[in-house]
Design a binder for these strands. Structure first.
Lengths: 220, 220
DNA sequence: AAGATTCCGTTGCATTTGCAACAAAAGGAG
DNA sequence: CTCCTTTTGTTGCAAATGCAACGGAATCTT
């Protein structure tokens, strides 16, 4: 797929036609950069003034704790973005590092260029800003949602509130979750084996049925 | 204090002079509404198209779980805002209710008016949008930060990562935290007595000192 | 000063969880 | 098909936690 097609998929450009995208990228003074595997796109402590969109390869956002352990915050596949929260918050120094885990191409866009209406009266700026607002707001709401699951005191309660949400999203007592066991455990911040145990118990009690990622709620 | 002074304190109006604020509020078509204690400002399921700033009194953002229990998501004191994430995300139906817990005055601002540059070429729109972006981004980063604390598996680990952050914020091994014990327990999603127990252990082991909300880290 | 209220620490106990290690099942590659 | 890898389930056990209940200290009110 052509770069432009990948970039187009990003939520930031929602509602903008591909034909206009190239023009916009020029207007934004977007630059492609290439990083070798393991190379850093951004180091902790550096000033952030850009937003990055991964075009090919993959980068990870990571953090070091005080013992020097690297913790992966998120993985960014092609078409997705990183750094937008830092850039928009006007944070001086990054508290995370971004590293290419494969040979990667990243499109760097100056944040100021996005929020400042350009002199050439580019009519798409308004749309870009609106998209950025929507994007940040949605991420925030998703975080809030996750907080609700995580706030529960037992694994069962976490699962039940998570299931309740899945049910609402799918409008059905049957749904397929977008995680495997390990990912679900990570998402809920619990141990995988303990999660497995609890799921087994719940099935045994007749509360749920499941096969792989397909779940069905039996209580109503 | 006059209403305008309270409103001015809101981050949305950062960098905007009080003298201009009145003009802006007119331009935004902001309306004051008054709510009696227990009256609802917004009900679950209603469409959200406005952002609210509390001028006097207090409102709470709450949610009902499937058993009908009301859970308080956040409390909004004078000068602070609610509904901005929903409004910016363009969510059709609110998944939370907002209720006045005291007789309250709330300033309602149409979201569209904020993000749409007005015909009268009000030069402050750009600033408002910039502030809104910054505001959302900061909230998101704060959530991410909290996630990091909460993700830890034991109370001690949660505390240590929280302390580490407080240390960084205050640039010192001594700091005062903005929570009492119960609030800290809620913030970390743990039981208050268990938190108290763990703090006691850590003090006993010589890791920390504390008195009320003043803490000192002894390990380095 | 007395009483009420809020905040904080303490403790016993049952339950839950993390951890580690292993086993079974499923899926992919050659 | 066979080997290898990934995913999922199982289990023993020690440790951590939630819960409930109580008591003391601090603060506020009247």
């Amino acid at each position: 797929m052509k770069s432009i097609e990948i970039i187009k998929k990003n939520y930031l450009f929602k509602g903008i036609h591909v034909d206009n995208l190239k023009e916009i990228l020029t207007c934004l003074n977007a630059k492609s950069s290439f990083y070798k595997q393991r190379e850093f796109v951004l180091l902790t402590g550096q000033k952030i003034s850009f937003i990055g969109i991964v075009v090919s390869g993959k980068v990870v956002v990571e953090k070091e704790d005080k013992d020097g352990n690297r913790i992966i915050i998120s993985e960014i596949p092609p078409g997705e973005m990183f750094g937008e929260a830092f850039a928009c918050a006007g944070i001086e120094k990054s508290s995370v590092s971004v590293q290419a885990v494969e040979d990667s191409e990243v499109l760097l866009i100056n944040y100021k260029k996005i929020i400042t209406t350009c002199s050439s009266a580019c009519i798409f700026h308004t749309k870009l800003i609106e998209n950025m607002l929507e994007l940040l707001a949605r991420k925030l709401l998703m975080q809030n949602q996750r907080m609700e699951f995580v706030s529960k005191r037992t694994i069962r309660e976490k699962l039940l509130s998570f299931f309740e949400n899945q049910k609402k999203l799918s409008n059905s007592d049957k749904f397929t979750i977008p995680y495997n066991r390990e990912q679900l455990a990570d998402f809920l911040f619990v141990d995988r084996s303990a999660l497995s145990r609890e799921l087994g118990k719940m099935r045994h009690e007749g509360l749920i049925k499941f096969d792989k990622n397909k779940f069905e709620l039996m209580y109503v």
